[in-house]
């Protein structure tokens, strides 16, 4: 069964034009799903809906067979425990006033997860490849790639079933990006992931399924291998052909 199902979801801000229309797709348990689109595609808005930060105007989102009810505090507490996120900008996603220990254990405290929070944080830091003594330091002492690792540690510390990532490697330098993509690959073996990105290369490297969004609608969805080899929609084709490639070896 699907861990998450999005059914005919639509959304608009205020009385404005619809940002999302008739969005339907599944996130099978254990899979990595990529939501790909350019600016104005509505992909970030869709992610906010999946996180329960906004409520769809129409349609519904099912998580583990149950409708996502962003208005119920009790439901959201259990939902947050099972669904976590990583954001784009490693410089703005960590509170500069807090030590790393406090940042990484925030979900544990807020969700009242029982157990030794420090030990759990140490385990999460080890999982993202950072030394344990980082926990006593402040965000400003880390590089962009390290900060993103810390953000990932925070996302996995409560052992969620689903991690949603919003352009989580776009702000990183190329050499750092490859390593963080590898880290996501490692982590995704243990959980389901939804990866929102404009970068088809990153999504191709990480995801087994791809959903292509354009101006608030799904234009194409399917297995990564199939979409890369045989894109059906003109938009997908132009997206793929626009990506600059490295010159072939002589």
């Amino acid at each position: 069964m699907s861990l998450m199902s999005v059914e005919n979801v639509s959304f608009a801000y205020g009385a404005g034009r619809p940002v999302l229309e008739d969005i339907t797709f599944d996130v099978p348990r254990g899979s990595n799903v990529g939501l790909v689109g350019e600016s104005g595609s509505g992909k970030s808005t869709l992610l906010r809906l999946l996180l329960g930060l906004d409520t769809p105007r129409g349609g519904r989102i099912l998580f583990d067979g149950q409708p996502l009810d962003a208005r119920s505090g009790r439901y959201m507490r259990s939902y947050r425990r099972r669904v976590q996120a990583v954001f784009q900008d490693p410089y703005s996603s960590l509170n500069p006033a807090h030590r790393i220990l406090r940042i990484v254990t925030e979900p544990l405290r807020s969700l009242k997860v029982p157990g030794d929070h420090r030990a759990m944080a140490e385990e999460a830091m080890a999982a993202v490849g950072l030394p344990v003594d980082s926990l006593g330091r402040f965000p400003e002492q880390f590089s962009g790639g390290q900060r993103q690792r810390i953000a990932i540690a925070r996302a996995i510390v409560a052992r969620p079933e689903l991690v949603l990532a919003d352009e989580a490697v776009s702000a990183l330098d190329l050499s750092t990006r490859v390593r963080v993509v590898d880290l996501f690959r490692d982590i995704s073996e243990r959980m389901t992931m939804v990866f929102v990105s404009h970068d088809m290369g990153v999504v191709a490297a990480l995801c087994d399924r791809i959903v292509v969004l354009d101006r608030g609608r799904i234009v194409e969805a399917g297995d990564t291998a199939r979409i890369l080899a045989d894109p059906q929609h003109a938009y997908t084709r132009s997206l793929l052909s626009s990506i600059p490639r490295m010159p072939e070896s002589a």
């Binding site: 996180l51 930060l53 959201m76 507490r77 947050r80 425990r81 669904v83 976590q84 996120a85 954001f87 784009q88 900008d89 703005s92 996603s93 960590l94 509170n95 500069p96 006033a97 807090h98 925030e106 979900p107 807020s110 969700l111 953000a151 925070r154």
Partner: peptide, 26 residues
């Protein structure tokens, strides 16, 4: 407007705690 506020909400932190632990110190 900072991502760490969104991150705190996703971590399940209540608005009251967000004001005390995230907004005031900054």
């Amino acid at each position: 407007g900072q991502d760490y506020i969104t991150a705190a909400r996703v971590s399940g932190t209540s608005w009251g705690a967000i004001v005390i632990f995230h907004i005031l110190p900054n």
